[in-house]
Every structure is written in C-alpha cells, then in structure tokens.
Write a protein that binds this DNA or RNA. Structure first.
Lengths: 195, 195
DNA sequence: ACATTCGTCTACCATTTGGTAGAGAACCGT
DNA sequence: ACGGTTCTCTACCAAATGGTAGACGAATGT
C-alpha cells in the first residue's frame, strides 16, 4: 500500500481536478482516503500547502511524460507533436484531474499558481523554440509560435477535460470512442499545423 | 440603473465564471452588487436558483449572438465559421465568465447542468448538421462532424477563458494583442477545417 | 529499559456558509 | 386615508470549513 502521504496526494489530485479546489473540503479528502482530517494537516500543514504539493506533483508528472515522448520521437515535427499528444492523452483522459488542475491555476491564490507556472515555463519555452525553428525551416505553417502553442494546449486540454462538451454531441466514453477521439484530435492538429 | 435582479445576475455571471461557482459565496455577490444578502435570496430563493438563472441567461446571450452572426454571414462555410468566432470572441474575452460558465457545468449539481445542455442542444445540432453538409459537399475537410464541433469549441473556449495559458507564453492583453490572438485563432481553425 | 520521535487520532474552536423569520419602507389600487 | 403588495433590510441559525491543542500507541535509537 502506498504511503499515507501519497494516498492523500492522489485523492486530492483527483478531487481538485474534477470538482475544483474551492469545492473540495479537507473533510472530503480525508474521508476519501479513509483517515482523520488531522492526518491530512499533519502531512500538509494547511490546505494551501496541499494544493501546492498537488500542483507540483502534477507538473512533474506531465513534464516526465512529455520529456520521454519527445526524446523517443522522430525528427519530423508533426510526428513529434503527435507523439506528445499521444503521451499526454492517455493520462489526461483517464485522469482529467491532471490537466484540469492546470486549468484551475488562474483561480488559485497567486502563490501556488506562480510556482506551477515557474515549473512549466522551461517546457513551454522549449516547445515555442521548437515551433519557431520548424516554421523557419518551412516544416510547419508559419504563424506566431507562442500563440500556436497556446492554441494547441487549449485544444488538447479542452477536449480532455470537458466531458460535457463531448456529451452534448452524443459522444460516449469507451475504448473505441476514446481512440476515435484521439485520432480526430491528431488529424485536427495536423491540419492546423501543416504548412 | 438596471434593476436589482439584473445587477445581481450580472455580478453573479462574472464572479461564477471567473472564480467558479463553489468559490463564490452569496455574501460576496451581495457585496459586489451593494445590497444585502437577503435581497439576493429574495430574487433567487436559493443559490442553486441563482446559478440556474445565470446559466440560462448566458446560454441565451450566446444563442442570440451566434444566431445573428450566422444569419449575416455568406454561404462559404469557412467564412461562416469565422463570422461566428468573431461574434463570440469579443464578448468571450471581455467576459471570460460567459464561456467559463459553460465550462463549469460539468461540476454543477446535475439539475442546473441538464437545463443548460437542453438550451444549447439545438444550437449544437444545427452546427453539426452544417458541418456534415459542408463536408459532404467537399468544402470542409472530411471528419467526424460531432468531434470536430467539440474540437472547435474546446479551442475557442480554452483560449478565451485561460489567461494563464497565454501568460506563460508571454502574451499580454491589449487591443493589438487581442486582435492578433483572434487572427491567429481564425487562421488556426481555417487550416484545421479546410479540405 | 527508557526517552524520543513519528503517525494518527479525538476534542474543540472561530469563521463562513446558505438559508429562515420577520420588520419596515415605498408604492400601489381603491 | 388605507389595506395590500413589492422590495429591502436587520437579526438570527445550524451546518460545514480550515485549523489548533494535545492525547495515545507504536517504532526507534541509545
């Protein structure tokens, strides 16, 4: 069995990510983990500390996943982007919390948010530099690489964290549905980015 | 001066949309409006009623804006899509609350959410039918129209409601920045949808 | 063997929350 | 003038929230 600290972190990630930080009380998290609230406050002296820890862990997990995908991919930029999406897609859909959390940042007390942003900045900078380089080489549609990065992020995050947006068009979550969704997403981004 | 009810609705829309429904207390809304909490509860018997009213109003506002844009646009599908984006973009960025609220739906007590979805379904159905028709005619890239609709929605909503996603790439909100952002968004979607 | 640290707990507490009860002012139609 | 309706208010309340104080048992080092 995982350590109490890890179990708290896990449960908090899921709950914060799906319901929002403000909507989840320490009591709820404690109940989910099956410990007393005081145990939470022992490991994380305040709710804010818990939020910070959850964000740091999520950012780290994402960084690792993306890093591995980039390293394993070929040189073609579209393949590379596809590899990243594929890598992010599985954990993101299985646990909307992951990306959902990042979406939560803008409403968090600034301290925690700044920290998360700081953690992700190198990743973003590298992506932007990569896009710029490939655009210069004519392998991607020419555009503002910073905004393109944001647009890709918005598309992937949006689609992965908003089950409702898919429900209204009649989409049903299933293994096959998930695969189709991922493929449509990839085709969409390929078309959007190709020269 | 607008009626008390409308001022409450306005303030609630902004606060719910930007901070999330659970994070905003009736007291905060009342203070923002400059009225006692009881006045809120007079107009909206419970917080849930207020949330429902806010959602209905937002959905209606969006419907009207989109409807007008569609009616005024030419027949070319890409122009038509562009017209809708342009129409939605201004209110969305000025008031992230509008689209942000819809994003909130998935975490709301189901009753309010179902209502909003019911309100938006005709709009969605029409969009999907339109996409399907244009794809059949070869004027749009062939794909699953339902998922394409979701992807477009995710992209637009994501970019309009996540200032943080833009901040990390160094984007600054300004009249010129906003125009550039909108143009990049349009080019992005055009590329993604063109045959 | 014993003091100490670690992890978890029960018992509280102050504040905030959504909501109730009902008073009082302003505006009606008669 | 006046009884009723509309609107806003003050005064409360019970429940939930984040957090404190400190007891208790199990390891652990000496």
């Amino acid at each position: 069995m995982a350590s109490t600290r890890d179990r708290i972190l896990d449960a908090a990630t899921d709950l914060f990510g799906t319901r929002g930080v403000d909507a989840v009380s320490l009591d709820v998290i404690a109940a989910e983990v099956g410990v007393a609230k005081q145990t939470l406050l022992y490991w994380f002296p305040s709710k804010d500390d818990l939020v910070r820890a959850v964000l740091v862990a999520a950012a780290h997990e994402l960084s690792v996943v993306i890093d591995a995908a980039v390293r394993a991919a070929t040189d073609d930029p579209l393949d590379r982007i596809e590899a990243v999406i594929r890598a992010v897609f599985r954990p993101a859909v299985r646990r909307p919390a992951l990306l959902g959390l990042i979406r939560e940042v803008s409403r968090l007390p600034s301290a925690a948010g700044e920290r998360l942003i700081a953690d992700l900045t190198p990743l973003v900078d590298r992506a932007v530099a990569f896009l710029q380089h490939e655009m210069d080489a004519g392998r991607l549609r020419r555009a503002d690489p910073r905004l393109v990065a944001s647009l890709c992020y918005a598309t992937v995050t949006g689609i992965a964290t908003e089950p409702e947006a898919l429900r209204v068009v009649g989409w049903q979550p299933s293994a096959a549905g998930l695969r189709r969704l991922r493929n449509e997403l990839l085709a969409f981004l390929r078309a959007a980015l190709a020269p």
